[in-house]
């Protein structure tokens, strides 16, 4: 069975906050977007334009006010919280700006977390996969360190390994390099790029760094809740 070419399809997505109150604001106004398997796209735009909001919708952390959203060809509209959680756990990996590891867990355990949540209890295969991924992101030596004792760049690498552990179709990264110095940022970005090329995982990366955005296959620009530009890098 051939997998659908689009990992993500959005059609007519609207998102309002404070619905039903006098403070209701619409943040996204009819987003049309699709992302192909293996694409590495940057989501750019000024602060407050709705990038994080859009990422949360795609990541099934929040629901659109209206519109069609499909992950790997599966529409999400009618799903309950449990089903959304399942889908999120299996198909989507998250990397946040502030690393957001669980400090009480070691690096290895943080990477195992999505598998642990999905399967209920740890097993050897899970441990092996997490360990392999940590080696892949260059942290093979630091597996058993508590997450809180790693540097910012190291934590972000752990977060990337964690995002990949379930072999998701799509990794969503919200300013993954925002807190890092240029050198670490380049390292983290290069790592994501390598994984994208080797494993064909799609990435949607929010960034304020034009230099990094320029190294993506595609740049999607959001202004005031509307996509104003969507350009493929040529050459």
């Amino acid at each position: 069975m051939a997998e659908p070419a689009a990992v993500l399809e959005l059609a007519g997505i609207h998102k309002s906050y404070g619905r039903g109150s006098s403070l209701e604001v619409e943040v996204l106004h009819g987003i049309e977007l699709s992302l192909l398997r293996g694409e590495f796209a940057a989501l750019i735009g000024p602060s407050g334009s709705g990038k994080s909001t859009l990422l949360n919708l795609i990541g099934l952390l929040d629901r659109p006010s209206s519109g069609h959203l499909a992950i790997d060809g599966a529409a999400t509209a009618g799903l309950d919280d449990r089903a959304l959680t399942r889908l999120r756990g299996r198909r989507i990996g998250f990397v946040f700006q502030h690393h957001l590891l669980i400090p009480a867990f070691t690096a290895l355990e943080n990477v195992m977390l999505p598998m642990l949540a999905a399967r209920g209890r740890p097993d050897g295969e899970m441990r092996q996969r997490a360990s392999d991924l940590l080696s892949q992101v260059g942290l093979g030596e630091r597996q058993h360190h508590p997450a809180s004792q790693l540097s910012g760049g190291q934590q972000q690498r752990v977060a990337i390994a964690r995002a990949l552990v379930m072999r998701p179709s799509l990794v969503l990264a919200d300013e993954p390099t925002g807190n890092l110095d240029t050198q670490s940022a380049d390292g983290v970005f290069a790592l994501m790029r390598t994984i994208n090329e080797q494993q064909g995982t799609s990435f949607l990366v929010v960034t304020h760094d034009p230099r990094l955005a320029g190294r993506c296959d595609r740049q999607i620009e959001l202004v005031d809740g509307r996509i104003v530009a969507d350009t493929q890098r040529t050459g």
Binding site: T85, G89, F94, I102, A117, A118
Partner: peptide
Amino acid sequence: AREIGILRAMGTTRGQ
């Protein structure tokens, strides 16, 4: 709260 949020984003269910 943050850690719970991450756990949820990583696919942990409300029940868990």
